[in-house]
Design a protein around this nucleic acid. Structure first.
Lengths: 161, 161
DNA sequence: TCAAATCTTTACTTTTTTTTCAAGATTGGT
DNA sequence: ACCAATCTTGAAAAAAAAGTAAAGATTTGA
């Protein structure tokens, strides 16, 4: 259960644009250099982000990428969904709709876990916007901290019952 | 952000043992057949689970695998940690200790997100035991549902501020 | 109009992960 | 003692993911 390279670097590249003042833009070589990845790799990531409507690309001299909408309105959950290709579970087709292929069919003990994890992660990410990542790092920490504390309390309660 | 094949199938194989009455055991071919994977693949997964102390292996005729401790005392967080090799983050070495290699060093905007996600997932998984997965599926659902509801409430509150 | 700078797209290569194979080691039964 | 059933282990093959390369398309400005 870990973030993929595509998710991590895609998010990082997007964050570079969010850091800029106003609606400024960066070229592919600039983004690549700031993230320490190749231009080709950055190109592929930015292409995905462009296709999904998070960034605006301009070709030609003076071209580059800029955010397509304000950083305050870009939730991490949306970004991750696009970079992740939004698949959950690996081989159990029960979740993705093709029920027949899965040996576990209806009575699959770990299905609620896989689905549940995916949901709480998405929900947590939907609480965080790009703009929080650039300036308000403390708020990001606070959000996760509160969730963690609630989870721990939940565990203690179920222990008492 | 998805569960790996090793995590998913390792957990599934372990669950097969947890489903058995008492301290009964299963052989590798039996586990493989029940999970629809090859015997070789099941062998590797069970070897990992054995090394980590979750199952007990007996060789020779009448051999097989059984749980090394009661299903009530095996938390999903522990199992996943072993199957996952417990790594978080992909390329940013800031998290794993080798600080020098990472271009982002201290001022890394998405670090709190990666670390935070890992922590809330681990915390959620630590609330769930193997025994809950075999019988008490409703409780598993309930746990995740409560977390999700709290996260949503959190979001609404931060909206009001 | 042309050249330089830039993004776009497809195909290819490399690396990592997953799966399989094969030989070894241990146990139980005869 | 021997054989059959079983787990163990390391290496190899296959598949998937990540990263690279190259040719194409668009824009700006001289």
């Amino acid at each position: 259960m870990k973030i993929s390279a595509q998710e991590e670097y895609g998010l990082r590249c997007l964050l570079q644009l969010a850091c800029l003042p106003g609606t400024a833009s960066l070229t592919l070589p600039q983004i690549a250099e700031r993230e320490g990845i190749s231009v080709a790799n950055a190109g592929k990531l930015m292409w995905l982000l462009n296709k999904a409507g998070f960034v605006q690309a301009t070709r030609g001299t003076k071209g580059g990428y800029s955010l397509a909408r304000p950083a305050e309105h870009i939730r991490l959950s949306e970004v991750i969904k696009v970079l992740d290709e939004d698949e959950i579970g690996n081989h159990c087709e029960s979740y993705t709709g093709v029920l027949e292929k899965c040996i576990h069919k209806g009575d699959c003990g770990i299905r609620p876990v896989i689905v549940g994890l995916h949901e709480i992660v998405q929900e947590a990410l939907s609480q965080i916007t790009l703009s929080q990542l650039v300036g308000d790092e403390a708020q990001v920490d606070a959000t996760f901290h509160q969730i963690k504390r609630f989870e721990r309390k939940l565990g203690q309660e179920s222990l008492r019952n």
